[in-house]
Design a protein around this nucleic acid. Sequence first.
DNA 1: GTCTATACGATGATAGAC
DNA 2: GTCTATCATCGTATAGAC
Lengths: 191, 191
Amino acid sequence: MEVKTSKERIFEEAAILFREKGYRAASMRDLSDRVGLKPSSFYNHIKSKEEILQKICLENAKKFVDGMKAIKKESDDPLKQLQAVIRLHVDIAIKDRSSVTVFNDEWKHLSEPFLSDFLKMRKRYEKEFSKIIEAGVKKKIFRKLNPSIALFTILTSLRWIHYWYKPKRKIDVKTLENDVINLLVHGISKV
Amino acid sequence: MEVKTSKERIFEEAAILFREKGYRAASMRDLSDRVGLKPSSFYNHIKSKEEILQKICLENAKKFVDGMKAIKKESDDPLKQLQAVIRLHVDIAIKDRSSVTVFNDEWKHLSEPFLSDFLKMRKRYEKEFSKIIEAGVKKKIFRKLNPSIALFTILTSLRWIHYWYKPKRKIDVKTLENDVINLLVHGISKV
DNA sequence: GTCTATACGATGATAGAC
DNA sequence: GTCTATCATCGTATAGAC
């Protein structure tokens, strides 16, 4: 089996291409070379170039939102929740690096109303993440730091894992999850 | 005083524009609107659009390389060095947010040989950063983690400070420096 | 040093034959 | 559903008048 439709191939190759060159620099002619269809043929399968971007951004946003929802359901312990969120980011980043890169780095090229919708989802996700940290501080499990700084320092290191993680570094998923958790939870210092 | 040459205004406004729209999506016509010169007039001051990108990338790269050099000179203590590097990233990110954003996020649009030169500098910087962590591990000051994971988890949270730090959040520089140091050195957990 | 006019290649997308 | 041919637009950059 492993037989892919043209439509599937378009979306897959586009994610790789958009990651490599950036959405704006990637042309439909570039995509044509990769997919093996003429640019005009794409339009039997998609409405526009931006539709590809929209789908990639939306699908990945859903992965994170759904993941966060499941985590909140599973445990009330802020530390366990934080560890689970870190694993969520690691897993998504590793499973489809191209797709998550486009989601994370190219969303700004969405047009309205997709851009506004995207930003709303994004803010909601950040809010849910923030609640975990706040709960931990309240329970005296977590250090009391400026809430924005704590949230974004952690979230930023998770959001751009795709940027430096390369399969050829041969770091297995479990090590990546555990070491990132270890570092963000306990710090680099031994004392 | 405060009288800026056209050339200065072109580079300043370009940094802001490239940050907002991305290098490829930002046109010379967009820049024209901001600077108040016709696109054709730019070419009395610059050679090409890419020259602007080149200058921004190179200048910022130099800031980091020079900063790292000074830090290594000042102390041999890995912890003090790490703290100083964190302050370096915070200070550069806050002092000129647009410029550092373009440097960090748009370098991929450099053409050769600028791209290769840039990547070489970048790798050297990462190596110098890595040496700090390795020295700390050797002295048993730092936790022993996978070297790539430790390096990039920390470095990533520093490289994208510009992405979430906004002046209107009213976080002062000292708080930002201290909380980021606190979090990365000791972790979010109290225990 | 800035302007108007324009070159001209690349872009996303469409029309219509097969 | 894929192709060839083509369109309208926008991109960076240049020529030459003032």
